[in-house]
Design a binder for these strands. Structure first.
Length: 726
DNA sequence: AGCACGCCGACT
DNA sequence: GTCGGCGTGCTC
């Protein structure tokens, strides 16, 4: 701020829209700002929040210059966060303004939290002494400041009692600083009793936590105590006075994690995810920026919270596909966490029982350190895993569960233990057709079948918002009562289970459950307490829950994820099935995992059953290397969507023609996307395949720049390092 | 990403 | 004759 403040200064400001560069604004006389300041600026007909930047901007003519309206009373965005925005924008080929926008997701938090009104007893007696009034005054006589509601609650009276006393002038009002969203974590609170293996691993992580940038892959089977181990790294960072971010996939369902954190640190971490109330959202954002919140547990978007002294990121279940964002800015939160650590000069811990192949290779090649936790601790034993060959033990007609699995469910329930049946498919049936004319129910705006949800009596598209009631008659031929459900979803498995075990307490869990996240958390709690015998669930039951009494896990259709042409299909299936079968036997009881498959010889099934993950990884890594796929080569995707198929295809061709010549990079497509039509938009994809050191960004940027600019309804998005091929 | 301006169908 | 559809173009 050494510039002459008497002259009009011009500063670059990143505004939350897809501009390639910051815009220039005039700084009014006397306004104190610097790089990172969060400001309100005029933008066209409205005002938006932007961030004062520090990279040069295009020269603009003075006529266009408009003044900054206001500097928010808010800590500026740290230098490291600004470099992070620039880096993510350059890497993902997104406009920097759109990345900055991710840091500005809590507009109300840019102004300080207003202090609360506190009541302090000012002396005197109430006009009429009632029992309720006496209780309030007894508490208030401590001389401390109470909030209205806090005092009423503590005294067990209604707010009107407090208000009445206040109206009589018995209280002075004072300002109370806004309370913290969470208490401070205490690193010494519940220090865990670690096994020698865990102690070694924790020691390594603690050492890292004291140093600069490093990446450690913490690799240990479910139940080996990874969480307890990385808690020690968190403790070290907290002791050192740094802030910590723990990324978890789908935090809305990880109440169990928060409880474990509380057991270790005597306080919960602040939560950050899309399900937070707006009020909580702004309080967390603000308190993270002010450094009052020390530890955040959050979904991928927490990576864009304005930490003022971030010193450690832990990415739990680092292999989880939920870390990949696939709209607007396409990014992998796991990879960007590593980048954030590199820029901030602090350690990053990636934890998983089934690491991503990329992470394994990075560890093998020495870019990441690998810390192994070989065994489940003390009393917890690995479940005995077996494949059920569905060709030899087929289900009864109309059913989906093999007699072998049903027998084990029966035994488990008879022993008073719990069984989990896993099927990664919501609803009752994925396809409904008419037995008379063959009509299939399809989404009017997507190229996908409608999924029957029998509990709701609806046909639902799983790719857009479309739903329709399930009719009695075929809309095509009018035949009554000849609609037939094809294939199973969790609801249909539940029907089979209830028919077979009418006395068992059966519960179905899936993400579309009525009552939302809150209800789900309650149900999961209830299951953990033993209030269900048989649980039927989609992948959300695989994530981060401890069901102490669960001794049987049955995978209804282990082949489900293997069918599509995705190069990661085998890896994904292995990870998901490892995770879900790992739900069994977490407290040492003998437990069993049964995997229904029509391909028992498939490497995924073999790896699961034999427990030999190592050979599976070796195969997958060798296959990736042979095909030049990540991390041995690089991929980028360009997704072209438009209102008509012809427009999308034609622009795809135009992009392809615009590809520069490069010996090390090839372009495949355009091909119609596997899900060709989503929400009424037709989609084509180009796949760009390069070598490990290829300049993918430069290549794609050149393509997009050289092609005619998209017209009409055509939209182009770029996905660097695509994870999904749909 | 918003938001306004700008040209063609069903209503007071 | 007006209200309103969303195509296209701009925002320092």
């Amino acid at each position: 701020m050494s510039e002459d403040s008497s002259r009009n200064r011009i500063v670059p400001v990143l505004v939350p829209m897809p501009a390639e560069r910051p815009y220039s604004y005039a700084v009014p006389d006397g306004m104190v700002i610097g790089p990172g300041s969060i400001v309100r600026v005029p933008l066209g007909p409205r005002e938006v929040a932007g961030i004062v930047w520090d990279t040069p901007t295009d020269r603009v003519d003075a006529k266009k210059l408009r003044p900054i309206s206001e500097v928010f009373d808010c800590p500026p965005l740290a230098e490291a966060d600004r470099r992070f925005v620039d880096w993510v924008a350059a890497y993902t080929l997104s406009p920097p303004g759109m990345v900055a926008r991710m840091f500005l997701r809590a507009p109300a938090a840019f102004d300080p939290e207003p202090p609360l009104e506190g009541l302090v007893f000012a002396g005197g007696e109430p006009e009429r002494a009632t029992a309720a009034r006496a209780r309030v005054l007894e508490l208030a006589r401590d001389g401390m400041a109470w909030t209205r509601s806090g005092l009423a609650h503590a005294a067990g009276v209604s707010l009107t009692v407090v208000d009445g006393l206040k109206a009589q002038g018995l209280f002075e009002t004072v300002k109370i600083p806004p309370p913290p969203v969470v208490a401070a974590p205490d690193p010494t609170y519940g220090a865990a009793d670690l096994t020698p293996d865990q102690r070694d691993a924790a020691g390594t992580l603690r050492d890292k936590a004291g140093g600069g940038f490093s990446v450690t892959l913490l690799d240990g089977v479910t139940g080996s105590g990874k969480t307890e181990v990385y808690f020690e790294a968190i403790a070290a960072a907290v002791e050192a006075g740094r802030q910590v971010l723990v990324l978890v996939p789908e935090i809305a369902l990880t109440a169990a994690f928060l409880d474990r954190f509380h057991d270790r640190f005597g306080a919960k971490p602040a939560e950050w995810h899309s399900d937070l109330s707006p009020r909580m959202r702004e309080r967390v954002w603000r308190q993270v920026a002010e450094g009052r919140v020390r530890v955040v547990a959050g979904a991928r978007s927490a990576l864009f919270l304005p930490f003022n002294d971030l010193g450690l990121i832990v990415v739990d279940e680092e292999h989880d596909p939920a870390y990949k964002q696939e709209d607007r800015v396409y990014y992998s939160a796991r990879d960007m966490a590593v980048v954030r650590g590199h820029i901030g000069g602090f350690p990053v811990v990636l934890a998983s029982a089934t690491p991503a192949v990329e992470s394994r290779v990075n560890a093998d090649q020495g870019r990441y350190e690998r810390v192994m936790l070989p065994a489940r601790f003390a009393e917890a034993a690995m479940p005995d895993l077996r494949a059920i060959d569905m060709r030899r033990s087929p289900p009864a007609r109309g059913g989906f569960l093999s007699p072998v699995l049903l027998e084990q469910v029966e035994k488990t329930v008879a022993r008073g233990e719990q069984a989990l049946l896993f099927l990664n498919r919501r609803g009752y049936a994925p396809l409904t057709l008419c037995r008379v004319c063959g009509h299939r129910f399809q989404c009017p705006s997507c190229s996908s079948w409608l999924v029957e949800h029998r509990f709701r009596g609806q046909l639902v598209c799983h790719h857009c918002a479309h739903t329709e009631p399930r009719p009695e008659a075929c809309p095509s031929c009018g035949a009554l009562d000849h609609l037939v459900a094809c294939g199973p979803g969790v609801e249909r498995i539940a029907e089979e289970v209830v028919g077979r075990f009418p006395d068992a307490r059966t519960i179905v869990l899936s993400s579309d459950m009525l009552g939302g996240v809150k209800r789900l958390r309650l149900e999961l709690d209830a299951i953990a307490k033993g209030e269900a015998d048989i649980v039927i669930g989609t992948q959300l039951v695989a994530k981060g829950h401890n069901f102490p009494n669960m001794t049987l896990v049955g995978v209804v259709d282990a082949d489900l994820g293997l069918a599509n042409g995705d190069p990661r299909a085998a890896e994904r299936t292995f990870q998901l099935l490892s995770q879900v079968t790992g739900r069994a036997g977490r407290t040492g009881r003998k437990s069993l995992g049964l995997i229904q498959t029509y391909q028992p010889a498939h490497p995924v099934m073999q790896a699961l059953v034999s427990g030999d993950a190592e050979s599976f990884y070796e195969r997958e890594i060798a296959e990736r290397e042979r095909a030049g796929l990540p991390p041995f080569g690089r991929l980028a995707a360009i997704i072209i969507s438009a209102a008509t198929r012809a427009e999308a295809e034609s622009h795809g061709r135009a992009l392809r023609r615009a590809a520069p010549a490069a010996a090390d990079i090839s372009v495949l497509g355009p091909t119609e996307a596997p899900l060709a039509l989503v929400a009424g938009r037709h989609r084509f994809r180009l796949l760009i395949h390069g070598e490990r050191r290829s300049d993918m960004q430069g290549f794609v940027r050149a393509m997009v720049a050289a092609a005619e600019r998209p017209r009409g309804s055509v939209r182009v998005s770029v996905d660097i390092d695509p994870q999904s091929f749909l």
